[in-house]
Design a protein around this nucleic acid. Structure first.
Lengths: 334, 334
DNA sequence: GTGAAAGCGCTAACAA
DNA sequence: TTGTTAGCGCTTTCAC
């Protein structure tokens, strides 16, 4: 594989000249430029970006860490990030943690050692701390989806409180007062804030929450399945159910189908996250849409902004959530 | 940011020794080792893998090029690839082409210049050639999903012929003889081979294909939508429909719903690719499952195999497709 | 057991 | 307008 030296030798110029015609970083006369380009073509020269990165201290690589790309929410986040950054010549390194803290640590270290120019992190650590806080604080970082309270960084989150509030408000406006909720782990800001929105909405309408209808899941399909069954099978089930993420919604819908529950006749359902299949269900699913693509896209832009301009103050960007009313929510039977 | 020299100086050893304790690549006495590690810890040293890559000529990076990660099929492929390679310390660079040849070219060049150790390519070029054939032939490459006939490389494909054959055979076994098919572009091996499987199955059962029921789409949702409408609205519509990829299936299902067509009463449906929502539909969707996760996983392993062992002969791996019978296919009305 | 130093393939300051 | 060369941060050969 030819190097810049081979090109220089064969074209009778210096490596500096070759470098400059490749990067258009200083004037080179027409004839020389032509000759260099011809030799590059002839030898099939491919500049070595590793060497280049070592010198310029930039890799044009962005790392993105999510729990699982198979979750369409994260798929969209990653796609948004890719679109935002690839337009500027950046590549994205995809890292799936499967909610495994060890994997997250491993990946952060790897991205740091590979000198990624930026990292978008949807952490799987619950709580306000992160074991790699020290290094993260020095990195070009944007935290996404889940907040790490003690970490100073740019951030992009969904409006979890608002989204959950809208879901509950919608059900209340339909006449429901017996409302079940499957929430997520309170260790995640997303879980905590969604529950907060739920409680706020209930409180604003003088409905006191019923513990039996409000179990906490782990954001995974299986727990949506199990908890939905539990809620339905309790002596006095609610007339409406809000499920606070798309995996658990999937599980809950499976449970309802198995139990032969009719939606929305027997129970109204509102899910969190719109998906490509929401509209295909019978009835189509009412959801809170969180705009994951936009979240990723904005995260990418914030990262680029920081890489280019070196802003000082950190910014947090809250992406609005909106209610999409479809057939799975209707007034209660009574 | 400290370098290996800083560590060496502070620990009173040579850079060679530091390097060797980091990589465990030659014996270092206990005391020295301890001291070096202490200094590394103290300064928060993070080895620079860019510099390392330049020397060892390995980046531990795999590039994967697909048309769109938002398509759950590719999501699964990428996830499988990531699992296979990350276990060996590799990172994956995600590249979405949106079926845009220019983007594909750009990404291949970029991956080559960044010296990715391997590339998994699901091309968007139709036909037997690839404009970057020369460079691809020298790269560590595995072609996936879509074949590039003239390219010599390892390969992983679905059994498109067999999958489509099973779909049609299933419908025939239910009693259908009026079978519609929405195929994909014949420029893609996936489109061509699926149609081949369809025709073979029809032929094996002495059914002559009806052109009016067998339009060719472009693998995108919109074309599934339009073509399904067209098929349903023709004077003499079929009693069963096979849709040859998941995007077009999504579109076709939307069209049927709009037209108020009952599945499987009015028409039986078989889709290609299982999805997380197939089972939630009413009725659940009968599909041909292609094991995209396995495809990605195997592609990753083949890449690693080639990186480690430098095999000489190329291998092509055909992943079997299987029929998953669910409620959307049933005997015809008559 | 350990160290000195060449070199991986580039960029860019400095010189001409 | 172009060339020389130091150095980016590592690995590894060769010497001791």
């Amino acid at each position: 594989m030819p190097t810049i030296k081979d090109i220089a030798r064969k074209a009778n110029v210096s490596t500096a000249t070759v470098s400059h015609v490749i990067n258009e970083t200083r004037f080179v006369s027409k004839p020389l430029k032509r000759k260099v380009k011809a030799v590059i073509e002839e030898l099939g020269y491919q500049p070595n970006r590793i060497a280049r990165s070592l010198v310029i201290q930039k890799t044009h690589t962005i790392g993105v860490i999510v729990s699982d790309i198979l979750n369409p929410f994260y798929t969209a986040v990653v796609r948004g990030l890719e679109d935002a950054t690839s337009a500027f010549g950046y590549n994205v390194m995809l890292c799936n943690t499967d909610e495994d803290p060890d994997k997250e640590i491993k990946y952060i270290r790897l991205l740091l050692e590979k000198r990624a120019d930026g990292i978008a992190l949807a952490t799987c650590f619950q709580g306000n701390e992160h074991p790699l806080m020290g290094q993260l604080n020095q990195a070009t970082l944007v935290t996404i989806v889940r907040r790490i309270a003690r970490l100073k960084s740019d951030a992009v989150f969904a409006d979890n409180v608002g989204g959950a509030y809208k879901a509950i408000e919608h059900l209340i406006s339909l006449g429901h007062r017996r409302i079940g909720v499957i929430s997520g782990p309170s260790g995640f800001s997303s879980g905590r804030e969604r529950l907060e929105g739920v409680l706020k909405a209930l409180n604003d309408h003088d409905i006191s929450p019923n513990e039996a209808w409000m179990p906490t899941g782990d954001f995974k399909q299986e727990s949506g399945y199990l908890l939905a069954k539990k809620i339905i099978q309790c002596k006095n089930p609610p007339s409406a159910l809000f499920v606070s993420n798309n995996r658990m919604t999937l599980g809950a819908l499976k449970a309802l189908r198995e139990l032969g529950i009719q939606i929305p006749k027997d129970i109204s359902i509102v899910g969190l996250d719109d998906t490509e299949w929401s509209i295909l269900l019978n009835p189509p699913l009412t959801v809170i849409h969180q705009s994951p693509y936009d979240m990723g896209n904005i995260a990418g832009k914030m990262l680029l902004g920081r890489i280019f301009k070196k802003r000082k103050r950190f910014k947090t960007n809250i992406i609005p959530a909106k209610l999409i009313e479809r057939g799975s929510s209707a007034p209660p039977r009574e």
